[in-house]
């Protein structure tokens, strides 16, 4: 087996807001009936977090569940556990209508950390990121610049962004440029 390397191999653009590629992360696309008890149970067993409500992400370290659409979840696990996690899901849901696929190597994860991280993202996405409407735990699939991406807030100073691996370099450069350009001052920033 060849050695797995993430899209940007942990590249960092340090600054007042730091953009950092997260390295390898296990990501599984799970499509199925999200109200199904078996599905909810296996997701929680794998990640230790509750199945998120519409438009939410529940994350804990490397693990988490993100609401992608009414019939789709993104299951986040440590990279080394992804293959086993798919096997576990397949065993648990056997006989029902579902699809689970390990997409870890097809995606990239980027952290945006710092005081005005909200504005770094807000400059690039057609999303209202005002603190009144977007809070830690909220999850949004949209676009960043010209490419599809999804993001959620881990805390007031941290966004986690996922995008396709093929556009990881573009997304990283875009976020880094937005961070370098500085704060706009649209949103009240935490002290």
């Amino acid at each position: 087996m060849s050695e797995a390397i993430s899209a940007l191999n942990g590249k960092v653009a340090a600054g007042e807001v730091t953009v950092r590629e997260a390295g390898l992360r296990g990501m599984i696309i799970l499509r199925g009936d999200l109200s199904d008890k078996k599905l909810r149970k296996v997701c929680t067993a794998l990640t230790g977090v509750k199945v998120p409500e519409q438009g939410q992400a529940n994350c804990d370290g490397d693990k988490g569940l993100c609401w992608m659409s009414p019939d789709e979840l993104l299951v986040l696990v440590p990279y080394a556990e992804a293959t086993q996690a798919v096997t576990t899901i397949e065993a648990a849901l056997s006989g029902t209508h579902f699809l689970a696929e390990n997409v870890s190597d097809a995606r990239a994860v980027i952290f945006v950390e710092g005081r005005f991280c909200r504005e770094v993202i807000a400059k690039l996405a057609p999303v209202d990121l005002h603190p009144d409407t977007f809070q830690p735990g909220d999850f949004r699939r949209t676009r960043l610049g010209q490419v599809a991406a999804a993001f959620w807030m881990l805390d007031e100073d941290t966004f986690e962004v996922i995008c396709f691996r093929s556009v990881a370099a573009y997304t990283f450069d875009l976020l880094a440029a937005s961070a370098k350009a500085g704060a706009v001052g649209m949103f009240p920033t935490p002290e």
Partner: peptide, 12 residues
């Protein structure tokens, strides 16, 4: 109506 979010024209 599925996401409950206000999607901009460029998202659609």
């Amino acid at each position: 109506p599925y996401c409950g979010v206000d999607a901009d024209e460029t998202d659609l």
